[in-house]
Amino acid sequence: MEYIELFFKSIFIDNMVFATFLGMCSYLAVSKKVTTAVGLGAAVIFVLAITVPLNWLLDKYLLQPGALSWLGEEYATYDLSFLSFIMFIATIATMVQLVEIVVEKFSPSLYNSLGIFLPLIAVNCAILGGSLFMQSREIPTFGEATVYGIGSGIGWFLAILAIAAIREKIRYSNVPAPLRGLGITFIITGLMAIGFMSFGGMLTGGGDAGDENVISQTAIEKIKKEVEQIDNSKN
């Protein structure tokens, strides 16, 4: 159930483009044609699906405060979280490079259709954003991190596909000349983002602590005793 919820949440409610406005640059620059948009979108899904879980592992076993405890007790106090940015970026850039090499070797036809988009992805802030969100939202398991990565990627894919389709059609409309191209794309994206805001009300709620987690009766009596002492001892 959590998986399905997280999946739809990351596609629609937390849509990378329309809710958090990440990956805008390539979204605007590579959305002139549907076919190229599909290529870039697919590449983004692919890279997000790999790097988010990978960075989850890095975060869990290397970066978090206390993450090194698997090395032994004496490492438990290390906190390498200041390295997060660098490690995440390094993973992403390495993965992109690696994917490029593997695809080129095993499927030249896919490489030809994806090829030029892969290097673009390393600088797409939606990718780094995905990993940073994964870290700050404290996604608990490896499985959920994978689902989150794929979901965010699909969200981005949908967004670029939609805008590319609109841009192909709008060429036949009578847009004021200075607004053609980038200008009208900005405005349409704004309107689409307003539309996507209506997803915001879905799937919220929850987060209540269960009744069993409240302070126990025994502890309550002890706290009362401590507080009474204050009243007696000081003015």
């Binding site: 209540d208 602590a209 987690n213 409240v214 126990s216 009766q217 502890a219 309550i220």
Partner: peptide
């Protein structure tokens, strides 16, 4: 506020 203070609310 809902989740965290609830823990203390029993007191």
């Amino acid at each position: 506020i809902r989740a965290e203070l609830k823990v203390y609310s029993s007191y």
